[in-house]
């Protein structure tokens, strides 16, 4: 299972990773090899097998609708890269 350079670039866009040129080359090779190995799962005919998304068969885990104290602004912004008043500032979303 090979992956093309274009696919790598497309996936990098989806994943929001700005990859440098040689990273693209290296990842194309590495991902190709890994996909070849993991593609093994396709060998099994599992049409009648249900998927498992969770190791325990739990259902209906919920909580009551009762508020707790929120963090407080000092804690909210303690690690903020950029704060403007009481808002998180980011570059323009264009």
């Amino acid at each position: 299972m090979a992956i093309t350079r274009e696919e790598v670039l497309h996936v990098a866009k989806l994943a929001r990773l700005e990859l440098s040129g040689d990273e693209v080359e290296r990842l194309t090779l590495e991902l190709g090899a890994i996909l070849e190995a993991v593609g093994k799962v396709a060998e099994l005919d599992l049409d009648d097998v249900p998927p498992t998304s969770h190791p325990l068969e739990l259902v209906n885990a919920w909580r009551e609708d009762e508020p707790y104290d929120s963090l407080g602004l000092d804690a909210v912004f303690a690690n903020a890269p950029q704060r403007e008043d009481d808002l998180f500032r980011v570059p323009p979303t264009t």
């Binding site: 994943a15 929001r16 990773l17 700005e18 990859l19 440098s20 690690n79 903020a80 890269p81 950029q82 998180f88 980011v90 570059p91 323009p92 979303t93 264009t94």
Partner: peptide, 22 residues
């Protein structure tokens, strides 16, 4: 790069996110 952790700046939000993660 919005709420905590490393931020590498960019011209746009998207550029900032891509660079930060790179």
């Amino acid at each position: 790069g919005v709420r905590y952790g490393l931020r590498v700046d960019g011209e746009s939000y998207r550029e900032m996110v891509e660079r930060t993660r790179d």
